[in-house]
Structure formats: structure tokens, C-alpha cells
Design a binder for these strands. Structure first.
Lengths: 408, 408
DNA sequence: AGCATATTGTTCGCACTCGGAACAAAAGGC
DNA sequence: GCCTTTTGTTCCGAGTGCGAACAATATGCT
């Protein structure tokens, strides 16, 4: 029951019905491939005649192709249809504090090439360097002129509409225009997005069996900070100022531990990797410099190691991990009470110890959730796909092909 | 950029384009009435021929009517079109702890009749009594057989799809089916919804100039508890278990004051009328019975009186009101960080003292909001329309006439 | 081998849609 | 009285889904 926005609507033309049905057909083929025209017609509840025309148009536009002939118990054998994906390439990049990742993949997220190097922090040099690597990668992979776009993922707040990076503390970037500069330097259409939201997009568009997945969910990545992406009705929620989903800094405890953002008691200050390690080492957060986590990293001791110690019988490590888990649950309770999503996906180093943390996490959740049904909200550790952020960057480019047409 | 749900989609038929454009036309007429066919055609960017057909069909369906002839500087004078509203009646009821309200109004929310009486708490007797009053009201108003539906608003969690009231502590109702019983007793189609969400619906569908209003907003009503409705993209967010929007019980302070829900530190426990009065009278919340608020009511001293005292120079009253305002701002900060709505509407007794509370409220908001832009999120005290909950109940029935058709 | 049956995929007429142009109707200015 | 302007209607054309008939292709039975 959506209200029509009378200041921004889309009148239906003669071609609107076709447009709608073509998109539906494309998505059904994507999720049930290989599939015949007749089967498609049955799934859409239209005649085979209509399905045939839709398929013809999708083939002409290069979105699908005819494959082998299938088997049938009786009657004429069907010709199978497939979505054209393996030769439709996109570029994806992920800028992090330590490293920058660049991947060439197809629109279903299958990797063709990958390159990793130390992050360049100066925006101008960053763009120049990245553009050069892009050109080289496209040349080596013989993909010049055959790349449909470039998705860039950044740890920070991003205005996806204008492509400006509003604030990325880990990189020291503030109000930097990366999209247009990168587009000019590479000749590609560039999309920029925040890391947490990108992961949610990857989950929505690229996960296997995504058709059967929920259309309203929250994706939570707990690592240096807490990255969150909120998808409602198959649509990423970005918000008026592009900050929607910033659950990391909601307070659990106004007088609680100091957060890197300068405030006290943020959820992030209770559950980030730094918070978990601090519990183990007895660090005093309010006296730590913002770079302490990277010091710990340099000492090459991360949450993954802490989980390993907890697993091998270190009671103090187990205690630290489970304490974090309880606070994770308490924060999730607010998310459940407020957004009441179909599913919550969890990611981050600490989820490697899911068997250790599930019980205290669910206890924390149950402690503050309002109904029994809500306490049973499915929690799923994000499937172990590699590079969810890069896949999200790819989804930025792939999604428009498959998305519902804008209507009414 | 919405993903098509392949398990629940709507194929376009021959009539889909017409359906879409008819709805757009209806909404444009509603928001710009009186309006001519030619003007409608210009606003829709279609030819006058198409607009003429759409208008003809809307007239045949009884949704609009032709009114007077307008004036024009030159040329043939236009015939004005209006949405038919004044003779399309709906019933709206609002059940509260003290009183139950029943209103007969038209689909634009204009009141025709109103009745108020002491709430009956036994569900069976409640339904029987309410149905009798409905019949009488329809008879007196000569509206029998001319009422398009019945919207019921309840203080508690409601499964809008099945019409079951899951939990309404103020009424002592738990898992009660009211909709079907009420539908059987009155012969009307009945819709049930939670109070906070109903207010949001009223704001979305019935406010004057709603066409110019935001399509993503949060409506917050602070009174006995905190009622919230969240509208995203012109659509009310209800959630998997129909609890979405329960911001009242997010923690500000895990060790904070005890809440009526049994937990500690909920936002509601900091800002409800009971919390505000407790600050003034020095009550100890953890020792209060759940009915303390009603005791205060019986003493006929409410937050409205507290605001009056604050205004007349009672420093302690002013302090209590402003302390609540700061906590309201702190909670709003989480809402802004998480949903980042276009606008936040505020309602409740304490907003009567908006000039007193705006400054500490905005200070609390700024304290925890992540960007300057977000701190500037428009806060608007809900326009002083009477009975927002009853108007919300009416909107439950009126909305389907104007909502966007389901497509793709 | 010949025929019935079953299934896939195509083709055609029909009713419906928007889009554009021509038209009639109604008003004011000269 | 005629021109100009604006509104509202009518018509035909091109594009749509829908149903039925059709051709193509396979299997099973006699």
C-alpha cells in the first residue's frame, strides 16, 4: 500500500506493460535457469505466445541466450534459456585502511582477476594510481571496451547519488569527490557506496538462491567498526542524508565505554574488534589512541586469534568473546524491535566462533526483544563467500539490469 | 532500485497501464482540485485525449465528479474536477485505557458524528457494545449501507494482516481476534492497527497538503508510552512480526530507570509522561505500580498541567520538562542515525510546551547525531488536528482507493 | 510403418492501451 | 463577423496482452 508521489511519478506508456513483463521474465530465467519458454509462460501465468515475444526481445538485447535442448518424457523437447553473465564484466574496488582490492568479475560476481596493494591515502594520487591499475588489468584480461561499470566501496559515509565521500575517518577523507574524477580517468561509469550497504547489496543480488532469500533484512558486519546495511522490500534504504543504517553509534549505555567517534556507550564501543581485544588485554579504552587496533594488528594478534585461543581452552579469551556476543545480542534486539526484519545476516571476524557466541548472543537478544516471535528472528552467519565487499561493488553495477522498472 | 520478488510478483496485463495512469490522475486531482482535464493532461505529460478517457472512467467509478466551470483569460472555459469525498463515509474507533472513541467521517477525515464512552475491557462485551453503537450511529446519521469500512485503533501490538491483537497491556488483551468478530457483528469490512502507526498513516494520507509532505518520515507520539510509526517511500513499515517501529524500548542506559515493560533503561522510561511526572514529584519508578500514571490522572494532574506550571515560573517543573526533552533528543538521534528520515513528526502532551523544550531537545539530538546535515533533520510538532488516531483509523479505509497499484 | 497423443514454440485476429492529429465547442479581442 | 486561444472529443495508428489455431517435434501404441 504505497502512496503515489505526485511530485515524482512515472506515467505508464504503451511500452510499460512490456517493460514490466520483460523484467519479470528476466528475473525468472535468472533464478530458474535453465528454463524453457513454455515453463516461463507457466510461471508467469501468460500464454506461450507472450513469453515467446518477451524471450525474443531479451535475446535481441543480449540479456539471455538459447542453450542446449532439454529432455522431456513426451512431446517436443524444450530449448533452454540462460542469462548471459559470464562475458559481461564489471570492475569492483574496495578501499580499506591497510590494503586496496581491485577485482574484475562478471555480473554474477565470478572472479576473473584480483589485485591487492597498500592503500594510497592522498585522494589525487589514489585516483591516478587506481586508474592506471584499472587500465592495466583491463588490457591484460583483454576486456577493454567490454566492461560495463566500476563499483567502488569505501569505509565511511557516502553520498551515493553524487558520488561524494562525505566522511571516511579510516582514510582521512572528508567531502572528497571520487566518482567523477575516477570516471574521467577510466572512462567508465562509476558508482560509490559504503561498505556495510555494499555487503547488503551483495547479499540481495548475488547470493546463490537469492531468489529464495528474504526481501527485508539487515546485514551486520562487526570488525573495526560496525557496518550495517538495511534492505526493505528488496530496496536498500539510504536515507535523506545517506546515513541510514548507522546502528554502530546508538547508545547501549550513555555513561559506557568511550567510542572512537568521541561519544560514550555506542554499540560499536561494546562489540568492535578493538572492544573485544581490550576486554582480553585489559586495555583502558578512554586512554587509547584511535590507532590502537592497528598496533594490535602490527603485533599480529587479531580477533581471529582470540577466537582460536578461546577454542583451545583459554578461559579469559572465551570470556571476552562471549561478553562481546552478549552486547551484540543486546544491540540486535533494538534492530529487531525497530525494523523487525525477516532475517539478520552477521559477518565479521568474531563470527568465526559462532558456535562459541551463539548462546550468549541469543540470550542478549531475548533479554530485550519484545515478543517471542521476534526473539526467533533468523540469524544467519553470512555465507563464507570471499570478498563480500567486492561482490557488493559488483552488485552496484549489475543490479540495474535486473531491478524492477520505476512505475506510478 | 527494487529487486523483483520472484515468489510474489504481478504480471502486467492489457489493463495495467490504464490502472496505473488512472491512479496517478486520481491523486493529481485530489491534490490540485479543482483542476481541469487540460491541466491534468499537462501535469501528467499525456495528451488531452488520454486524460479525457481517464477522467471519464474515474467519473463512472464514482471517484470524482465534475463541478463548476472555471474562469480563463482567453478561450473555452474549463470544467473543474473534484474528488468525491464528502458522501463517502467510513467509521473510525480508538480504544484507550480510559475512553473509547467512535467517529463517523468521510474519507478525507471530516467528522460527521462522534461518540465517547468508558472503555469496556472484556473483549466479547466490547465487541457487542461497539457493534450496537455502530448500528445506532449509522441509523441516526442515515448512513446505513453507505459506509465503506471500519478502522479500529488499539494501543498495542497488532497483526494487521490477520486482524489479531497480539498484546495490548493497557487493555489487558493478549492474542485476541477482534477484526473478524467485529466484521461479523457489523457487516462492515474491518481493519485494525496500532496507534502509533495509525497516526503515521493519518499524516501520510489525510494531512492538508499531504502531497507536498515527505514520503519517508517517522511519527512519534510521547504519552503514556512512546508510539512510533515509520513510513518509508510512502509505505508504512510493519515488519515480519508486526512490531517494526517499537523504538520505545530501545535502551539509552542498560542500568537506567525501570520501565513498565520490566526492563531497565528504555527510552520510554526516560521520556513517558510517567517519567516526566516522576521527575517533578520525586517518585521512585522502580517502586511504582504500573497504574501510577492513572493515579496521577485521578489526581487530575497531567503533563499538560506540568507544562503550564513550567510556563508560569515553576523552576522545578521547567527542569523536569527540559530533562525529558533532552532524553527525547537523545532517542531521536538514534532514529536519525538509523532511519535518516526526511522529517520527524512529534506529538503528545509535552509538545504543548514546544517553545520550552525545543532547545534541550535539539541539544540532545546534536549530542549523538553523526553529521551536521542529520542534526538539521526537520522536527515538526504534529499539526494541531484533532483526533489523529481516529483520523488514522479512517486512513486505513481510505488509503486503498488512492494507493499505487501493485506491479512487478 | 502409421497413427494418436503430448509438448514446445509460432502465428494470427481481437480487444485494449497510449500517442498524435484533426475536429468541434466555447470564449474573448479586434 | 472573423481571428485567436483554449478546452474537450474523436479518430486512426502503433504497440500491448490474450486466446485459439497452427506447425514442429518427440514418444508410444497398434
Amino acid at each position: 500500500m504505497r502512496k503515489i508521489n505526485t511530485r515524482d511519478f512515472q506515467v505508464a506508456t504503451r511500452g510499460t506493460s512490456r517493460e514490466i513483463n520483460r523484467r519479470i521474465a528476466l528475473n525468472l530465467i535468472r533464478e530458474h535457469q535453465p528454463i524453457s519458454r513454455a515453463d516461463l509462460a507457466r510461471r508467469m501465468s501468460v500464454t506461450r505466445g507472450v513469453a515467446g515475444v518477451l524471450v525474443q526481445e531479451l535475446i535481441e538485447r543480449g540479456l539471455i541466450y538459447e542453450g542446449a535442448t532439454g529432455e522431456a518424457a513426451r512431446g517436443r523437447k524444450p530449448t533452454f534459456l540462460h542469462v548471459r553473465a559470464h562475458d559481461r564484466l564489471v570492475l569492483a574496488a574496495d578501499v580499506r585502511f591497510s590494503k586496496t582490492y581491485l577485482m574484475l568479475c562478471d555480473i554474477s560476481g565470478r572472479q576473473h582477476a584480483l589485485e591487492v596493494w597498500d592503500t594510497v591515502f592522498d585522494p589525487a594520487r589514489f585516483v591516478k594510481d587506481l586508474a592506471a591499475r584499472v587500465r592495466r588489468m583491463l588490457k591484460i584480461q583483454r576486456a577493454e571496451g567490454n566492461c560495463e561499470g566500476f563499483g567502488l566501496v569505501v569505509p565511511g559515509m557516502v553520498d551515493h547519488r553524487t558520488g561524494r565521500i562525505l566522511n571516511a575517518p579510516a582514510l582521512g577523507w572528508r567531502d572528497v569527490d571520487v566518482r567523477d574524477r575516477l570516471a574521467a580517468a577510466t572512462g567508465l561509469s562509476v558508482q560509490v557506496e559504503n561498505a556495510g550497504r555494499a555487503c547488503a547489496l551483495a547479499q540481495l543480488w548475488l547470493e546463490h538462491g537469492a531468489g529464495a532469500g528474504p526481501h527485508s533484512f539487515v546485514y551486520i558486519n562487526v570488525s573495526d567498526g560496525v557496518g550495517v546495511g538495511y534492505v526493505h522490500n528488496g530496496e536498500l534504504v539510504r536515507g535523506r542524508d545517506h546515513i541510514a543504517g548507522e546502528f554502530g553509534h546508538m547508545p547501549l549505555d550513555l555513561g559506557g565505554p568511550r567510542c572512537l567517534c568521541g561519544r560514550q556507550g555506542c554499540w560499536e564501543a561494546h562489540v568492535s574488534n578493538l572492544a573485544t581485544l581490550s576486554r582480553y588485554f585489559g586495555w583502558n579504552l578512554s586512554k587509547l589512541s584511535p590507532n590502537s587496533l592497528h598496533e594490535a594488528e602490527r603485533k599480529s594478534f587479531a580477533v581471529t586469534d582470540l577466537v582460536a585461543r578461546a577454542r583451545s581452552g583459554d578461559a579469559k579469551a572465551l570470556g571476552a568473546v562471549r561478553a562481546t556476543a552478549r552486547f551484540m545480542g543486546l544491540g540486535l534486539a533494538t534492530i529487531v524491535n525497530v525494523l523487525n526484519p525477516d532475517t539478520i545476516y552477521l559477518a565479521g571476524e568474531i563470527t568465526a566462533g559462532w558456535d562459541l557466541i551463539e548462546e550468549p548472543l541469543r540470550a542478549g537478544l531475548a533479554e530485550r526483544v519484545l515478543t517471542d516471535a521476534a526473539a526467533r528472528t533468523p540469524l544467519r552467519v553470512s555465507s563464507a563467500h570471499e570478498y563480500p565487499r567486492l561482490r557488493g561493488a559488483a552488485a552496484l553495477i549489475a543490479a540495474p539490469t535486473f531491478a524492477a522498472p520505476r512505475v506510478a
